[in-house]
Amino acid sequence: MLLNNLLVKAIDFWQKHSGLSYLQTHSIYSKILDSDSLVIDLGANRGQFSEAITREFKCSCYAIEAAPSLYSKLPENGLIKNFNYAISDRNEPLKLYISDNIECNSISQEVASSYGLQGEISVDGITLETFLNNQRIELVDLLKIDIEGAEEAVFNSTTDTTLCNIKQLSIEFHDFMPGSISTEEVNKITNRLKRLGFIWIPFSYLLFGMESSDFLFINTNRCKIPYKDWLGFQMIKLLLTLQKTLSLVEGATLRLKTRLKRLLYQLSSS
């Protein structure tokens, strides 16, 4: 427990000294954001992230939310443009399954059913490529993705050229949810972004069972990263990996102790 607390404090130290911050459950490289930046919020929900990012940096934000009931509650503060779409791999209507948990509405029925299924509706689907072309967006300073399992569809329909025109991505992958994207597909997307020149920082290694729920990717070809920040990123990745390893060891030790107790109980009862 002491070692874990020390690791968390060390990660927090390097995060603060590397221009990284945490905003509405998403980690971002805040040093490259300002009032001229353009942010796209995929899976805006009720606009918590959109509102926070525009308040913090006075930047423009395109908030995209599929569920009409949530879209109607998106904030309007002059910096946010709201769009009622489901970002997908095709430009056509698709089924959106509505969950009792407003954060679990999904194109996957199994994901939406995790907290109770209310029903299904038809919504307008659109690819990220088409959306960017329609809005004449050539460069994105931050793409935040929290779309309850549709990550695979988005990346499979987005070209390398488009991804290379994004300075950073903050992604919540949902491979921890049944019926969602697979861990193998998460690894495939991660490796693709690395190949394109993105630094990868897995902040959610701190979250047991949700290790891919807060991944930050920074485009080294688009962002000028000072050496001290780059060094901080490497230190954070090392510390996060150590923390994950520690959690795995602690979990294995706990399971072993439980098995030994059961075995001793069985032996004493025989």
Rank of each mutant, 00 (worst) to 15 (best):
L117W: 00
L33I: 08
R136S: 13
S157M: 04
L163C: 04
T220K: 11
D89F: 05
R255E: 11
I87R: 01
L263G: 02
C59H: 03
T158E: 02
I53T: 06
L96S: 01
I236N: 06
F155S: 04
L117A: 07
T220M: 13
L240H: 02
L246I: 10
F217H: 01
I11V: 09
A252R: 14
L79N: 11
Q24I: 15
G197A: 00
G119T: 00
K81E: 10
N191K: 14
T54S: 04
Q168D: 07
T162P: 04
D214K: 04
V123Y: 05
T190C: 10
L248S: 15
P178T: 10
Y85D: 01
F233N: 05
N219D: 02
L143T: 03
I199T: 12
S170P: 02
A63T: 05
L143R: 02
L142P: 04
A66C: 05
V8T: 11
S269N: 15
N4W: 09
R259W: 11
E250S: 12
S114W: 07
S157Y: 00
Y97Q: 04
I64N: 02
Y227E: 15
A66W: 01
L3R: 10
T127P: 00
L38C: 06
D100H: 14
L94P: 02
L94Q: 04
D214W: 06
Q118E: 11
L143V: 05
E148R: 07
L254H: 11
I145L: 07
I121C: 02
E120H: 08
G251Q: 10
I107A: 00
T54V: 01
I40W: 05
S157E: 03
R255N: 11
F83I: 01
L132T: 04
Y227I: 15
I225V: 13
G251N: 13
N82H: 03
S21G: 09
L163P: 00
L20N: 02
E120M: 12
L196I: 03
I126M: 12
A52V: 06
L216T: 05
I137R: 01
I218V: 15
F57E: 06
N187F: 12
W200I: 11
M1K: 10
T127M: 08
K224I: 14
I107P: 02
R255G: 03
M1Q: 08
K16W: 05
P178R: 09
E211I: 10
V249G: 06
I199P: 03
S99L: 03
V249S: 10
S21T: 12
N134Y: 09
Q135M: 10
I189E: 02
T162V: 15
L2Q: 13
T253E: 13
K31E: 11
S270M: 12
T190R: 12
Q234C: 15
